[in-house]
Amino acid sequence: MGWSLTIGRIAGTDIRLHFTFLLFLVWIGVTDYLVRGAAAALDTVVFILLVFLCVTLHEFGHIAMARRFGIRTPQVILSPIGGIASLERMPEKPVQELLVALAGPLVNVAIAGVLMAGFGLGTSQMTAIDFDNATLAERLLLVNVMLVLFNMVPAFPMDGGRVLRALLAMNMGAPRATALAARIGQGFAFLFVLVGLFYNPILIFVGVFIYFAAASEEQTAAFTGFASRLRVRDAMEPSPVVLAAEDLLSAAVDALLSSPQKEFPVVSQNGQVAGMLDRDAMIIGLRDHGAMAAVGTLMRASEPLLIDQPLVEAFDQIRRAGAKAEVVLDTTGAIVGILSQENIAEMLMIDNARPGWRFRRG
């Protein structure tokens, strides 16, 4: 996610703060300072930081459980509406997803239990706590209980929604389970927006996030459903135009205008893949360096795909690299095609229109 900065790294996972979190913290602190004074402002800021420490521990509950199933988490991002742990992939088995989803709320249960034991707070006392006049420990206790209750709302892709999908997937296929969970999640999203209009504006942002996140998860599940039976050869664009690293940018422009390609493999003098040059880099290079610039100075690094590589795996590789397309090699190392996100999206649209369509392109 852009507009965020790394504040630490734990066990291979970057902890990043979104800039809106900093703005939120400053806004709350300044507002409290103007209304109630410096001491109250400091107390509020400390409380918010402790709340987000609890949120971070919640996310690391997910991360730790996912790691048990061999799934890494490159980063976790904190924003005013909560934390987002960016797992490389979701567990394939429903029971594993169930455990990963429950791990986060269970961390908050543990924190609440520690606070109750450490400060002698009983369950009967919780209902009598006046939040405005409560101690710091009492407020943190209430917040952790609220985090558990809120996160377990079955609004996919929140934790409760992931629990719902995992349970559904035990009795139906993952794509159907995801589609149903996503519809339920989007229903809750509308409810959050409606409640937010009258009570708490933050719920509006939560609702909007849930709606689009659920739609994205549904699309990803639909892709996995149809792509699981395909290889790179089935989706690649064969016989691409190839550029040499020493070619001038003017030659690349000619290739762009005379072919349907938007991304071009670049080879070194010995014929090995040296990189990829896409249309955007070409236009920027033409503007900044002119037509006589060498293609090799403008290309990006390449991670070639193999022609018989599973399509799901290849797509994940392209997505993680932040690329639009990647070159495809055969078993001898020769360039035989290009796999692009755009072409995969077109195949998904075809599969949605005619499920089970047999793609024979390679």
Score class of each variant (00 low, 15 high):
2 G>K: 13
8 G>I: 13
11 A>P: 05
13 T>F: 11
18 H>Y: 07
23 L>Y: 14
26 V>H: 08
28 I>T: 10
33 Y>V: 09
35 V>W: 11
36 R>P: 15
41 A>W: 03
43 D>G: 13
44 T>A: 12
46 V>Q: 04
47 F>A: 08
48 I>W: 02
48 I>C: 03
49 L>F: 10
49 L>V: 09
53 L>E: 10
58 H>L: 07
58 H>Y: 04
58 H>N: 01
62 H>S: 04
64 A>H: 08
65 M>L: 09
66 A>D: 04
66 A>C: 05
67 R>S: 10
68 R>F: 12
70 G>I: 06
70 G>V: 07
72 R>C: 07
72 R>T: 08
77 I>R: 03
77 I>T: 06
77 I>M: 10
81 I>E: 05
83 G>I: 00
87 L>S: 05
88 E>Q: 13
88 E>H: 12
93 K>W: 12
93 K>S: 10
98 L>V: 10
104 G>R: 01
104 G>S: 04
105 P>V: 05
106 L>Q: 03
108 N>V: 08
109 V>P: 01
117 A>H: 04
119 F>P: 07
122 G>M: 11
128 A>N: 10
128 A>S: 11
129 I>R: 00
132 D>C: 12
133 N>S: 15
139 R>I: 06
139 R>A: 10
141 L>M: 06
143 V>G: 01
152 M>Y: 08
153 V>Q: 05
156 F>I: 01
159 D>E: 09
160 G>C: 08
168 L>K: 06
173 G>S: 13
175 P>R: 14
177 A>V: 12
180 L>Y: 14
180 L>M: 14
185 G>I: 14
194 L>R: 02
197 L>I: 08
198 F>W: 11
201 P>R: 10
203 L>I: 13
208 V>G: 04
211 Y>L: 12
211 Y>V: 08
220 T>C: 15
222 A>G: 12
224 T>M: 13
225 G>M: 02
226 F>E: 01
227 A>I: 02
227 A>H: 04
228 S>P: 09
229 R>V: 09
230 L>A: 00
234 D>I: 01
235 A>I: 02
238 P>A: 07
242 V>I: 06
242 V>W: 02
251 A>L: 15
253 V>G: 13
258 S>N: 15
258 S>Y: 14
258 S>A: 15
262 K>L: 15
265 P>L: 02
274 A>W: 01
281 A>E: 13
282 M>W: 12
283 I>G: 04
283 I>Q: 05
285 G>Y: 03
299 M>S: 07
301 A>K: 01
305 L>P: 03
305 L>R: 04
305 L>N: 01
306 L>C: 12
308 D>R: 05
311 L>Y: 00
312 V>G: 07
315 F>E: 08
315 F>V: 13
316 D>C: 14
327 V>L: 06
328 V>S: 00
329 L>N: 02
333 G>V: 01
333 G>A: 05
337 G>D: 05
339 L>S: 02
342 E>L: 13
352 N>W: 11
354 R>G: 12
359 F>K: 00
362 G>R: 00
362 G>L: 00
